[in-house]
Computed example of a mutant assay.
Amino acid sequence: MRRASGDGSFLRRLNEVAMLRALREAGQPSTVAELGRTAQISRATAEGILEALVRDGWAVEVDARGPEGQRGRPARRFGFRAAAGHVAGVSIGGSGLVGMVADLNGTIVARVSESLPREAAAEERLAAVVGLVQRAAEEAGLTTGELAAVGVGTTGVIDGEGRVVKSVALAGWTGVPLEAELAARLPVPVLVENDMRLAVLAEHWRGAARGRQDVLYLHTGSRIGLGLLFGGVPYRGSHAAAGELGGHPNSRWRAFHHVMDYAMSADPGELRAPAQAALFALERARAGDAEALAAVAAFANGLAEGLVTLVTPLDPELVVIGGSLARAGDLLVEPIRQYLGGVSLYPPQVLVSELGPDAVCLGAVRHTLNHAEKVLLAP
């Protein structure tokens, strides 16, 4: 945006912001008159501001020629130029990193990923995040400094200052002042948030929870996690620890015992982690193994028993199953539906995540877009 000074310039700045908001809300090229009405400014003022926004790269005038033979000059039409700014999102998980760059309309223009063991030192992980952001920006044809902001989602309890209060999934991650460390390494604003809150935000934005307001997101994989959405907003809790289930012995919920026992009996020569045992049982269940089907059903019922303690008091309209085990589809979802339907007064709908392993990174993008919009559209 152009700098403004003095009362007249400040008023013009307010009008520019109103026009930018009108362009964003329109969602498609609109006439000067339509945009002026939305922004509540005169047509003449609107036209002048739109021409300035085009010069500054925030708007674009589209070809408004009508059908051949149409009389009169066609109305000028303008649209928001989403490429005027970009944000990056990063997810930090046990198996590695995912990074994305999006324009101001949320269109993903670059995606990169990197494997990183959970035993990696904190300094190595920080350096990997910085390198990932640089690679994502380069793939989008940008420098890191041209990004409006970078959002980062990570496992663990994250306080209001972006510090990892506790992490049981990543070595040496507890106590890392993540936001401050990344802000010192990157030339743009950095926002850090818990991964499960970002996952449910992503599902609400462009996943299974579109149009829903009260949602419970259950992450199933090497760990069990929860994301809560109330009134369309991720719930943090009084200590920003909402959804954190803490560390369970050997990373096992009681529900995993069924698939662990099955995997041990079916293939005693292989020692598997809980999530690996669940995937092994799911593969056998799809092939028609009766014992595997029973183990998977018992596993799903165990998850449902844990869910009902949240579904009953919170009354969500939807439960989204995400994480690596969500690929089981109805083998996992249907027993949960049946269990909740039998014990809940108002059983929620149960759906599988539509976003897969990109949920957290997409949530980081959406979270950062929300921040960028506040900054870019502030008077």
Rank of each mutant, 00 (worst) to 15 (best):
R13F: 15
L14E: 13
R24H: 13
E25V: 13
V32N: 01
A39K: 04
Q40L: 14
S42H: 11
T45N: 02
L50D: 07
L50Q: 06
V62L: 04
P67S: 09
F78R: 04
S91V: 11
V101S: 06
G106R: 02
A120T: 13
E123T: 12
E124N: 09
L126W: 12
L126A: 00
G131H: 00
R135Q: 14
A140S: 01
G145Q: 12
T155H: 06
G162R: 11
T174L: 08
G175R: 10
A184E: 08
R185E: 00
V190T: 09
A199Q: 02
D214I: 12
Y217Q: 00
H219W: 04
L226I: 02
L229Q: 07
P234S: 08
Y235D: 08
G247T: 03
G247W: 11
P249K: 03
V259I: 08
M260I: 06
S265T: 15
D289V: 09
D289F: 07
L293Y: 03
V296T: 03
A297G: 07
A304S: 07
D315V: 08
P316S: 11
A328M: 00
A328T: 00
V333A: 15
G342K: 01
V352C: 02
P357D: 13
L362A: 00
R366K: 11
N370F: 12
A372H: 09
E373I: 14
L376I: 06
L377Q: 11
